[in-house]
Computed example of a mutant assay.
Amino acid sequence: MKFNENNLTTASECLKVLSHPLRLMILFLIKDQSLNVSSIEKLTGATQSNVSQHLAIMRYNGMVKQEKKGNEVYYTVATERLKKLLELIGELLCEKH
Score class of each variant (00 low, 15 high):
1 M>D: 04
1 M>V: 03
1 M>G: 08
3 F>C: 02
3 F>N: 14
4 N>T: 03
4 N>R: 09
4 N>H: 15
4 N>G: 05
5 E>Y: 11
6 N>C: 02
7 N>R: 06
8 L>S: 14
9 T>R: 11
11 A>W: 03
13 E>T: 07
13 E>C: 06
13 E>R: 13
14 C>W: 09
14 C>Y: 14
15 L>M: 15
15 L>N: 12
15 L>H: 10
15 L>I: 15
15 L>G: 06
16 K>M: 13
16 K>N: 03
18 L>V: 03
18 L>I: 01
19 S>E: 12
20 H>Y: 09
21 P>R: 02
21 P>Y: 01
22 L>P: 05
23 R>K: 09
25 M>A: 14
25 M>H: 15
26 I>M: 11
26 I>H: 02
28 F>A: 05
29 L>P: 07
30 I>L: 15
31 K>D: 11
32 D>W: 00
33 Q>I: 07
35 L>G: 01
35 L>E: 09
37 V>N: 08
39 S>D: 15
39 S>T: 15
39 S>W: 03
40 I>D: 01
40 I>G: 03
41 E>R: 15
41 E>N: 08
44 T>Y: 00
44 T>C: 05
46 A>V: 01
49 S>I: 09
49 S>E: 06
49 S>C: 01
50 N>H: 04
50 N>M: 01
51 V>A: 03
53 Q>N: 15
53 Q>P: 02
55 L>C: 10
56 A>P: 00
57 I>P: 00
58 M>V: 00
59 R>H: 05
60 Y>L: 06
61 N>S: 10
61 N>D: 04
61 N>A: 08
64 V>Q: 05
65 K>C: 07
66 Q>N: 02
66 Q>P: 03
67 E>S: 05
68 K>R: 14
68 K>Q: 11
68 K>W: 00
68 K>D: 04
69 K>D: 02
69 K>E: 05
70 G>T: 00
70 G>D: 00
70 G>F: 01
71 N>W: 13
71 N>L: 15
71 N>D: 15
72 E>V: 10
72 E>T: 15
72 E>S: 14
72 E>C: 07
73 V>E: 09
73 V>H: 07
75 Y>Q: 09
75 Y>C: 06
75 Y>N: 14
76 T>I: 08
76 T>E: 11
76 T>N: 02
76 T>K: 14
77 V>G: 04
77 V>S: 07
77 V>E: 04
78 A>Q: 13
78 A>T: 05
78 A>D: 14
79 T>K: 04
79 T>P: 12
80 E>P: 06
81 R>M: 08
81 R>W: 08
82 L>D: 10
82 L>A: 09
83 K>F: 07
83 K>W: 03
83 K>Q: 08
83 K>A: 07
84 K>L: 07
85 L>E: 08
86 L>S: 14
87 E>K: 13
88 L>Q: 02
89 I>D: 12
89 I>P: 10
89 I>E: 12
91 E>S: 12
91 E>N: 10
92 L>H: 11
92 L>V: 11
93 L>K: 04
93 L>V: 08
93 L>H: 04
93 L>G: 09
94 C>E: 13
94 C>K: 11
95 E>A: 03
96 K>D: 11
97 H>S: 05
